[in-house]
Design a protein around this nucleic acid. Structure first.
Length: 754
DNA sequence: GAGCACTGC
C-alpha cells in the first residue's frame, strides 16, 4: 500500500492528504502524475475546485480598495432577535468543580432547562403528550431523558429520543453516557442504520427517526418504550411526520406511554393543535442577540450582492472579531463565489486583512470539510461559503456575521409525471431565522438578509413545504399499509401529502402485486415491506427468488441505492475514466449489469482500495454499497428468499429488473428519443448511461429526472414480450407491438445481444 | 454528451 495511505481514514488521513498534495503539486510541474496520487489528491474533481488553485494568476489589477465602497449595498437594521445571557456565576461554579465527572454534573445544573426540572416532570405526569419548545443550547436533548429516568419512567420501558441525523444520535448518546457515568451501549445507547449500540440493559436510547419508524414495523405498539421524545420535530423530515401520525394513534390505546414533541418556537401552536391541544412547555435557550438587517431595495443578483456584502463586512468591521457565513444554493455557486472573492481580495492586496475562504457542502471530501473547523489565524477573517448543510447539520464556531441571500435548492417530485427535479426557491421565514441564529452562538451576531423587510414579511412562507408533500410516497404507503393503516387518504397527517401522490403510490403497489384489489397487503407486499428500499427495488429482490439470481439482484439493488455515482470522473482525465468504465460494459450489457460487474470485480480483489483507484471507481461509494448489500442479504434470509447465484443467465437478471420496473418501460422513437409506454412522455437516455449511444429499441429505467432535459438514468435493454409475460395485468399485446426497424435511425435500435 | 440541496432506512 502506498505510503501515507490508510484505508480506513482516521489517524493517517492528514498525512495521507499532505503526501497526495505534494504529489499533486509535483505533477503540476512535471505532468507525470500517477493515477493514485491524483485520486488521492482529488478524490473527486471538487477538491481541485475547492482548494487548489496553484498558478492562478488572474488578479484583477483594476480592483482596488475603493471598489468595496463604490459598490456598497444599503442595509436597514430592522429588528434584533432576542437572546438569553449566559450566567457568569454559573460558569465560574462550573470551572471550579474538581473531578471531570463532577464537572459534568455541575455542567448539568448550569443548563437553562435545569430550573424547569420539577415543573417539567409534573407536566409529564399530568399530560400524556407535551410539546416542548426548547431553543438551541437549552439542554433539552441530553437532560430531559435523564430527568425522566431519574423519576423512574425507565422501570416501565425505555425512553426513546429520536434525532433527524445519525451523528446527532451518536454524539448525544455519548454525552449522556458520560454524564451518567456508564459505558456507552449499556444503560445509554444509540441505534442508527448499520449500527445498534444498545443491549438488554439500555434504558435511554437515542435513535434516528427513520430507525424508530423501522422499529414500529416490528413492534406496532412500541411496548418496549415508556416514553418517546421526538426531537427537532420542526425539521419535519419524512420520518418525523410519519411518527407523528403513528404515535398519536398508539397514544389512544396506550395511556401509559408519554410523548414529548420538541419543536422550535414558530410552529409550537401547530404541533399543539395537532396533538389535541397538548400543553406547550417553554424552555429558554442560551443564545446571544442577533441584529437583523435587510436590503433597502431588492437585489437582482444575489451572488454578487453576497460577495459585495462579505467584503463590506470584512473591511468595515474590525478583523478578528468574528467570521462570516454565507448561505448559497449549491456547489457551482460556491465555486463561483470562491473564485470571485479570491480575485477581488487579491486585487486589494495587503490593504485589507487576510480573508480565508472556506467552502463547505455535503459532497466535499471530509478532509476538506475539516478546514471549516480550523481556528482562524490571528488578524485574519474566515468567510464560510456553505449550502444548507450549515443551517442544521453542522455548527461552525466563531461565526458572527451571516449573509442570507434567501434561496435554497430543493428536490420536488411530480406524481403526475413521476419526475424529480431540483429547484432553486425562496426560503421560508423559519429557515431565515434558523440561518440568522447561526451568527449568535458564541456572541452577539449580525445577519444581513439580501432581500427587503417587505419580502420577509409578505412574500416568504412561514415554513418550508414539508418533505412528505414533495416526495415519492411509494415506500411510505407500503410501510403504513403494513402497519394496518388502510385508508391513507383519511390518515391523520399533520400536513397531508397531495392525494395525487398517494393514489400514484397505491397504483404502483397494486401493479407490483404488493396490494390486492381491496388495498390489502399481499404475501409479496409483506416481504417487500421488510426492505428499506423503494418498492420497485424490493419487488425486484422478491422476484429474484423465482428467477434464482437473488445474489446478483441484491448487489444491483445495493449499487442503485448508493447516493453518489460510483464512477469517478476527474475533469482532466475524463477520457481515461470513460475508457476504464467501458470495461464494465463488455458484452453490451446495460447499466444495471455494469454495476453488478463493478461490485463483483471489486469483491474478487478482496475489496481492494488500489483496484478502485486503478479503475476510476469511488472507494467510499463502494464501501457504502457493501454495507447496504450486507443489510439486504440479512433481510433476504429473514424473509426466506433463497440466496442463489446465477451469473451466467443475464436474461434472468433482466427479467427480475423488469418485474420491479415494468412501469418504467420506454420505447425508442424515430428521432432517437424514447417514449414511455403507458403514460406517453418523451424522455432521453442520460449521457452517462452505457446505452446512450446503442439506443436499444426497448428499455426499462431506474429513474426519471428533469435537468436540462427529461433524462432516464440507469437503463437496461429488455424484450417487449417480457412486459406482457411479467406484467400481464399492466400491458396488453398491443402495447408492445413492434413497428419494425425501418422507421428507426440507421444502425440504431438493434436488438443487440438479445 | 451531462450536472451533482440535504437527510434517512
Amino acid at each position: 500500500m502506498p505510503d501515507g495511505y490508510d484505508e480506513e481514514g482516521g489517524v493517517n488521513q492528514e498525512k495521507r492528504f499532505a503526501v497526495a498534495l505534494e504529489r499533486y503539486i509535483d505533477s503540476k510541474d512535471g505532468d507525470k502524475m500517477n493515477l493514485f496520487a491524483e485520486q488521492e489528491a482529488w478524490e473527486d474533481h471538487q477538491i481541485n475546485k475547492a482548494t487548489l488553485k496553484f498558478g492562478s494568476k488572474n488578479k484583477k489589477q483594476s480592483d482596488d480598495y475603493n471598489f468595496v465602497f463604490e459598490d456598497q449595498i444599503e442595509f436597514i437594521q430592522e429588528q434584533v432577535m432576542g437572546g438569553v445571557d449566559v450566567d457568569e456565576e454559573e460558569e465560574r461554579e462550573r470551572s471550579i468543580a474538581k473531578s471531570a465527572h463532577e464537572k459534568l454534573l455541575a455542567d448539568r445544573k448550569t443548563l437553562p432547562v435545569y430550573p424547569y426540572r420539577e415543573s417539567l416532570l409534573k407536566a409529564v405526569e399530568d399530560h400524556q403528550v407535551l410539546i416542548i419548545v426548547g431553543e438551541t443550547g437549552s439542554g433539552k436533548t441530553t437532560q430531559i431523558p435523564q430527568y425522566l429516568h431519574e423519576a423512574g419512567y425507565t422501570k416501565r420501558g425505555m425512553i426513546g429520543c429520536t434525532q433527524p441525523r445519525r451523528v446527532a444520535a451518536m454524539s448525544v448518546a455519548a454525552r449522556v453516557s458520560q454524564e451518567m457515568n456508564v459505558k456507552l451501549g449499556h444503560e445509554v445507547g444509540y441505534a442508527i442504520r448499520f449500527e445498534d449500540c444498545t443491549c438488554e440493559k439500555t434504558v435511554i436510547k437515542y435513535l434516528t427517526d427513520g430507525m424508530l419508524l423501522r422499529e414500529f414495523l416490528g413492534e406496532p405498539d412500541l411496548k418496549s418504550y415508556s416514553v418517546v421524545m421526538v426531537d427537532e420535530a420542526h425539521e419535519r423530515t419524512l420520518s418525523t411526520d410519519l411518527l407523528f401520525g403513528l404515535l398519536k394513534q398508539i397514544a389512544r390505546f396506550r395511556p401509559d406511554i408519554k410523548l414529548l414533541i420538541s419543536s422550535a418556537t414558530l410552529d409550537a401552536e401547530k404541533f399543539s393543535d395537532y396533538f389535541d391541544c397538548a400543553p406547550i412547555f417553554r424552555i429558554p435557550g442560551r443564545r446571544f442577540p442577533v441584529e437583523i438587517n435587510y436590503t433597502k431595495v431588492p437585489e437582482a443578483d444575489y451572488l454578487d450582492a453576497a460577495i459585495v456584502t462579505a467584503l463590506q463586512i470584512h473591511v468595515n468591521e474590525p478583523a478578528g472579531d468574528g467570521d462570516i457565513l454565507v448561505f448559497l444554493t449549491g456547489q457551482e455557486e460556491i465555486e463561483t463565489a470562491q473564485e470571485i472573492l479570491k480575485q477581488r481580495t487579491h486585487g486589494l492586496g495587503s490593504k485589507i486583512p487576510e480573508l480565508v475562504i472556506c467552502p463547505i457542502y455535503a459532497n466535499l471530501p471530509t478532509e476538506l470539510q475539516a478546514k471549516v473547523f480550523e481556528a482562524t489565524p490571528q488578524g485574519a477573517r474566515k468567510v464560510v461559503l456553505a449550502t444548507n448543510i450549515a443551517e442544521t447539520s453542522l455548527t461552525i464556531d466563531g461565526i458572527k456575521y451571516v449573509i442570507d441571500p434567501g434561496f435554497v435548492k430543493m428536490n420536488f417530485y411530480d406524481p403526475r409525471t413521476g419526475m424529480e427535479s431540483l429547484k432553486i426557491i425562496p426560503i421560508s421565514k423559519a429557515s431565515a431565522n434558523q440561518r440568522a441564529g447561526r451568527s449568535g452562538r458564541t456572541g452577539p451576531g449580525k445577519c444581513f438578509r439580501l432581500y427587503t423587510a417587505y419580502t420577509y414579511y409578505n412574500e416568504l412562507d412561514d415554513n418550508s413545504v414539508p418533505e412528505i408533500q414533495r416526495t415519492n410516497l411509494a415506500n411510505v404507503v407500503l410501510s403504513l399499509t403494513s402497519l394496518g393503516i388502510d385508508d391513507l387518504l383519511t390518515f391523520d397527517f399533520m400536513d397531508p401529502p397531495p392525494s395525487e401522490a398517494v393514489l400514484k403510490a397505491l397504483e404502483l403497489l397494486f401493479a407490483l402485486g404488493a396490494l390486492n384489489k381491496y388495498g390489502e397487503l399481499t404475501k409479496v407486499g409483506r416481504k417487500m415491506a421488510e426492505f428499506p428500499l423503494d418498492p420497485m427495488l424490493s419487488k425486484m429482490i422478491v422476484a429474484s427468488d423465482k428467477y434464482k439470481c437473488s445474489d446478483e439482484i441484491i448487489t444491483i439493488a445495493a449499487m442503485l441505492s448508493i447516493e453518489n455515482s460510483v464512477f469517478y470522473r476527474p475533469k482532466n482525465k475524463q477520457v481515461h475514466a470513460d475508457n476504464a468504465r467501458l470495461n464494465f460494459y463488455t458484452g453490451n450489457v446495460g447499466d444495471h449489469v455494469a454495476l453488478l460487474n463493478v461490485y463483483n470485480l471489486w469483491k474478487e480483489t478482496n475489496f481492494s482500495a488500489q483496484w478502485c483507484y486503478d479503475n476510476y471507481i469511488q472507494l467510499r461509494s463502494m464501501k457504502q454499497g457493501r454495507d447496504i448489500r450486507d443489510q439486504l442479504k440479512g433481510i433476504v434470509e429473514r424473509v426466506e428468499i433463497e440466496l442463489v447465484s446465477n451469473s451466467g443467465d443475464l436474461d434472468a437478471i433482466y427479467k427480475c429488473i423488469t418485474s420491479g420496473y415494468f412501469s418504467h418501460s420506454a420505447k425508442l422513437q424515430k428521432n432517437g428519443c424514447y417514449r414511455s409506454v403507458k403514460h406517453p412522455q418523451t424522455v432521453y437516455i442520460h449521457p452517462s448511461s452505457g446505452l446512450c449511444e446503442a439506443l436499444p429499441r426497448w428499455v426499462v429505467y431506474h429513474e426519471l429526472v428533469l435537468t436540462t432535459k427529461e433524462y432516464v438514468r440507469q437503463v437496461s435493454e429488455i424484450k417487449p414480450e417480457w412486459l406482457v409475460e411479467i406484467a400481464p395485468h399492466y400491458y396488453e399485446l398491443k402495447d408492445v407491438e413492434d413497428l419494425g426497424s425501418k422507421k428507426l435511425p440507421r444502425g440504431k435500435g438493434r436488438a443487440s445481444k438479445l
